[in-house]
Amino acid sequence: MIVADQLNKHFKIYETKKGFIGSFASLLSTKHHIVKAVNDISFTIEKGEFVGYIGPNGAGKSTTIKMLSGILHPTNGRIEVGGISPQKRRKEVAKKIGIVFGQRTQLWWDLPLRDSFDILKEMYKVPDAKYQRFLKLYDDMLQIGKFMDTPVRKLSLGQRMRGDLAAAMIHDPDILFLDEPTIGLDVNAKTSIRAFLKELNTNEKKTILLTTHDMDDIEQLCSRVIVINHGQIVLDGTLEELRKNIGLPSLMEIQYREKPDVSEVKLTGIEKMKWEDEKLVILYDRSVLSSPSLLQNVTQWGEPLDIQMKEPDIEEVIQKIY
């Protein structure tokens, strides 16, 4: 369904200066450095797969998605989406894919949601009967009926995201690219969007590529995970393989009155332990070692002044491991 073959995207970053003379000078100047946003990435995604595409900020996730959807042209490498090159036949690919950018709505900001749908219906030439079925189905799945006549700018973030998701599905594409669709949403909104995506994938057999910062998205949705860092794939496998490799550890930071010697400590469940300035940072697997029992141990090593616990954050974990 989706093929990326030795994909590269290099950006030339020119130094820009202010003003007319400046912008003219930077137009002619050759001072630049090259950033390899995507560096030799290859993968194949089959029909019906739900793939999580994760990595720290600036790892090249968005750049990859933009190349797959035809927004950006790769420096070199080959892409096929539904058997077509998005660079050569962008408009045809656009009809086969649905895209949601969590950070930026694709809806008409000042118009009611219904009008955005009407315009998109026309744009993708969706027949009337099919369109009516779509409205019905997506009202059932996402409950968008309640705010169909509200201007998009007045919707809550959760409502807007549901509207965006429905808008991306209006032409019934086989492939979905979702760039952080749950960003900034509260727990309820996240849950309903996940349920919707799950349904799309299992019932409608949609192929979905998802980028996210939220580990729960990955755990609940993705059958396969591709991890990239510095523009390169560092892992491509199942969630279990990801877990085996990086453990998805929880994190505990402890500040002691006096630094205890912990080099001899051996505790099953602890994956990594190191000093960061005055703080002891422990990465541990919650399913093996519970937080209360780790707390107990930690207080035995010395007198803690402050203890902080963090839930697994993909970026931090990946940056620590690779």
């Binding site: 933009k66 927004i71 408009k91 656009a94 930026r104 694709q106 744009m123």
Partner: peptide, 13 residues
Amino acid sequence: EGDFDSLLIRPVS
């Protein structure tokens, strides 16, 4: 603002 992206995802020029 990077809004040009949203024009390039449509099947229209």
